[in-house]
């Protein structure tokens, strides 16, 4: 059981701030690191893995700083996003080399066992440069897991992996988390995180935007002000009705017809709308959210 603790961590490159004053604790179980592209996920991961010095603040693993501390790698398994360029080795040779570098007492046994776990026994005799993207990914994960780390860091592990393998990998990570391993993986895809992690950390533009239970954050995200565009049988009449509701913050008549409505609370508004229009003898033709992208969700979390 290991805790990875980030305390007021910032990192800047020249005058670009990649990570801005992030404090978080990653404990046992599966944690998802969620954020749009360029949010600073890779930079955070690099600092957690000891491959980047924080410009300020500290990153510690069980109380010991990770930067310039090679013994920490007894506990850490790292799956970087970068491609594997050991194309001249076979999969087995590569995993075995990783086991040897950890000086495992039974390196050969550990290699075979972990190849089995990631379902790579059959192609492990082939050179890595003949592998598909998904196979490379699995070999990378095998290499990171061969020494039974208590902390596993994966940077965008599902990129380029086909759906069946993705399921398989998710099962594997979930099992590791249940066994008490601290698993942290980064992703920019909400659904991916949703399927795997109970606990999530959200970073946007280098800032720590949200953390906690996935469901709670998802709810916070849904309860944010939302814009809708509505078309109905009588837009002006509907506008008059809507503006009286407490959840509605603004109503605009769009020049091309229809309404643009901003509401503060999605839940009540959605529940109210249908009975309300019916009771006023109006007919709804169309109701659609006009800003339901992940980026707008993130933007909301940051601006709040």
């Amino acid at each position: 059981m290991s805790d990875l603790v980030l305390d007021k961590v910032s990192r800047w490159f020249g005058n670009v701030v990649a990570v801005n004053d992030v404090t978080m604790t990653i404990g046992p179980g599966v944690t998802g690191l969620l954020g749009p592209n360029g949010a600073g996920k890779t930079t955070l991961m690099a600092m957690m893995a000891g491959f980047l010095a924080p410009s300020s603040g500290t990153v510690t693993l069980d109380g010991e700083p990770v930067w310039r501390h090679t013994d920490a790698y007894r506990l850490i398994g790292l799956v970087p996003e970068r491609e594997l360029s050991f194309g001249y080795l076979t999969g087995r040779q590569f995993v075995r080399a990783n086991a040897d570098l950890h000086r495992l007492p039974d390196a050969a046994g550990a290699t075979e066992r972990i190849l089995e776990v990631v379902d790579m026994v059959e192609p492990s005799a082939r050179r890595i440069d003949t592998y598909s993207k998904g196979m490379r990914q699995r070999v990378k994960i095998a290499a990171a897991l061969v020494h039974d780390p208590t902390v596993l860091l994966l940077d965008e592990p599902f990129n380029g992996v086909d759906p069946r393998q993705r399921m398989h990998l998710m099962d594997l990570l979930r099992r590791l988390g249940d066994d008490g391993c601290t698993v942290l993986f980064s992703s920019h895809i909400l659904e991916e995180v949703e399927r795997l992690a109970r606990h999530i950390e959200v970073v946007v533009s280098g800032r720590h935007a949200a953390s906690g239970d996935f469901g709670a954050i998802r709810r916070l995200m849904t309860d944010r002000p939302v814009r809708y565009s509505i078309t109905s049988s009588d837009d002006r009449a509907l506008a008059a009705v809507l503006i009286a509701r407490p959840a509605v913050q603004s109503v605009n008549l769009r020049p091309q017809g229809g309404l643009e409505v901003q509401v503060s609370d999605l839940g009540t508004f959605a529940a109210d709308l249908a009975p309300l229009t019916r009771s006023h003898g109006l007919t709804l033709f169309e109701l659609s959210p006009s800003d339901e992208s992940l980026e707008s969700v993130f933007a909301y979390l940051v601006d709040r």
């Binding site: 893995a49 090679t70 790292l78 970087p80 970068r82 594997l84």
Partner: peptide, 19 residues
């Protein structure tokens, strides 16, 4: 050179081996 160039040297460095 090539390992530093494309960053794959991290696989060797993420080990409890003195740099």
């Amino acid at each position: 050179g090539p390992e530093v160039d494309d960053g794959s040297i991290v696989y060797l460095l993420a080990k409890p081996v003195s740099r």
